[in-house]
């Protein structure tokens, strides 16, 4: 059973920088990717690597992790004995808050949804990134620790 809980995501700074660099490279479109790592016993997670993926929608307003990238990355992470700790995408002009579309299409209870907002150019990771859980059509923001 997944709970919203206070447990959060720890994102080492180099990975946070990679996420934002990927998001900025993909402008004007939304960017996406998967974050591997490990969950702890309390439902919190720690990221260890970022796997950038193609956005099959190639859109400033939508993302869809390219199906070929998705299957490859999911089983790479699984094969390495790691957890899929977060699903990443960027919002190019709006806050890093899950949209109604994000809620409607969310299929994963356990991983965090990690969002970047590029509304403020060159914003540091601490302010550009936010982490959420989407469970049962509801969003719950969770603590995001960049660094450590």
């Amino acid at each position: 059973m997944v709970t919203a809980g206070p447990a959060g995501l720890t994102l080492p700074r180099p990975i946070a920088d990679r996420l934002l660099a990927h998001a900025r490279t993909e402008l004007p479109n939304e960017a996406c990717g998967l974050v591997a790592g490990a969950f702890d016993g309390d439902g919190g997670g720690r990221a260890t690597s970022f796997h950038a993926a193609r956005n099959a929608e190639a859109s400033p307003l939508r993302y869809n992790v390219h199906p070929e990238d998705l299957v490859r990355i999911v089983f790479e992470i699984d094969g390495a004995g790691e957890d899929l700790v977060a699903i990443f995408h960027s919002h190019t002009r709006t806050p890093a808050v899950p949209s109604a579309t994000d809620l409607r299409t969310a299929q994963y209870d356990r991983p965090f949804y990690l969002l970047a907002s590029l509304a403020v150019p060159d914003a540091p990771p601490d302010s550009a990134l936010r982490a959420w859980r989407i469970v049962g059509g509801h969003t719950f923001e969770v603590p995001l620790r960049v660094g450590g």
Binding site: L34, V65, P67, L70, H89, T92, T94, S99, A106, Q107
Partner: peptide, 11 residues
């Protein structure tokens, strides 16, 4: 393989 998609967007 059956695999839930990862999709969404700002609007």
């Amino acid at each position: 393989i059956i695999l839930p998609a990862m999709a969404g967007g700002s609007r």
